[in-house]
């Protein structure tokens, strides 16, 4: 048995079965984590949560309309990604010849050609964009680039196979089919370990936690620990609804693909994605609001009043009111009592 027949036969079976089993496992993990953690949206219920599943993909979703051009590209790319392998006449012939004898209407070959070219063009664009834009380059790992490359590879080799462009080349010409099949199988396996990862842009994020308040599945969480507000997320719970992206007033939230095989087994673990310093109250020292947000508020409403926590503000205003009133006798004496006795809840 040579390598070709292994790739064509047993390996294909293994990959497909692993993929199907993995999908089922992921689905059950996802449902588990949603059922366990869904107590936030009692008002709207679990049906609401499930209805938000993949809402990010709706073309008129608020998060999508924020970047219309990029969204359109993303749509076309993913559309081609699914339609071409399923509708290609060459693939359908294989299905018909197989033991299943399945058959369906094929995509016209010229269409398939053009869609493949469009997909490859967009993949190149995404790759170049990721490498050129400084912001993106810094925040993406090698896996993000590999993701694009692995997705594009079966299409590239498939295109060459269909047209026989590189058949004259010695090694590539002989092994193109194997490369095509292997990369396709790799892509399928990779899809299994593909998660969505919410990202908060450090420069833009003010730490207001609107994304956390609006997350329907409790994927994102914010915990105030001492002087820090820590944002964490649970990868299995993210359903890519895009609420965080659409709600973020600063446009700091993003949803990204992430390949991570380890994550698959860490079902209920949470991962920290950002921590923000909290501002301390001038009077009582309690931490009350994230520093970047208070800085931003200071631009709109600059006042000494906002340097202490809401409770101390009430106390302060009450004191001021009392000091101004005609019943405020012996100011010095009561000033002291006011200070020592000031309640601060």
């Amino acid at each position: 048995m040579d390598f070709y027949s292994i790739v064509e036969g047993p390996l294909l079976w293994i990959v497909s079965l692993v993929f199907l089993a993995g999908l089922l496992i992921r689905l059950s993990f996802f449902l588990c984590s949603i059922i366990i953690s869904n107590n936030r949206n009692e008002e709207k219920g679990q049906i609401y949560t499930i209805s938000t599943l993949g809402r990010f993909f709706l073309p008129l979703h608020k998060a999508s309309t924020k970047k219309p051009f990029y969204t359109a590209l993303r749509y076309i790319f993913h559309g081609c990604l699914f339609v071409v392998p399923i509708g290609l006449s060459g693939h359908i012939v294989l299905w018909t010849e197989s033991r299943f004898e399945w058959d369906w209407t094929a995509l016209p070959d010229t269409w398939a050609d053009w869609m493949t070219l469009i997909l490859l063009g967009f993949a190149a664009y995404f790759l170049v964009r990721r490498l050129i834009l400084t912001n993106l380059r810094r925040s993406s790992s090698i896996l993000d680039i590999l993701l694009i490359l692995i997705t594009a590879l079966p299409f590239l080799t498939g295109y060459f196979l269909a047209h026989g462009t590189l058949d004259s080349m010695a090694f590539l010409g002989d092994n193109m089919v194997i490369i095509h099949m292997l990369s396709g199988q790799l892509m399928i396996l990779m899809a299994l370990f593909l998660f969505y990862k919410p990202r908060l842009n450090i420069q833009a994020c003010t730490g207001c936690a609107s994304c956390v308040q609006n997350c329907p599945t409790e994927t994102l969480e914010a915990n105030d620990k001492g002087s820090l507000r820590i944002f964490s997320y649970a990868h299995f719970q993210c359903i890519c609804c895009g609420s965080c992206v659409s709600v973020c007033p600063e446009g700091a939230a993003e949803l990204r693909h992430e390949i991570n095989a380890k994550r698959f087994l860490q079902v209920f673990s949470k991962r920290e994605i950002r921590s923000v310093e909290l501002e301390a109250c001038e009077r009582c020292g309690a931490y009350f609001a994230p520093e970047p947000q208070m800085g931003q508020i200071g631009l709109i409403f600059a006042s000494d009043c906002i340097k202490c926590c809401p409770n101390c503000r009430k106390t302060k205003m009450g004191e001021r009111l009392h000091q101004m009133s005609p019943w405020h006798r012996s100011p010095k004496e009561s000033d002291e009592t006011l200070k020592t006795d000031s309640p601060c809840r």
């Binding site: 609107s210 308040q213 609006n214 947000q293 208070m294 409403f301 906002i306 809401p310 101390c312 205003m317």
Partner: peptide, 16 residues
């Protein structure tokens, strides 16, 4: 959207 900017800005501490 629950960003709490109003809670942070109110000089009377009237919002929570």
């Amino acid at each position: 959207i629950g960003c709490r900017a109003c809670v942070g800005v109110c000089p009377f501490g009237a919002m929570s």
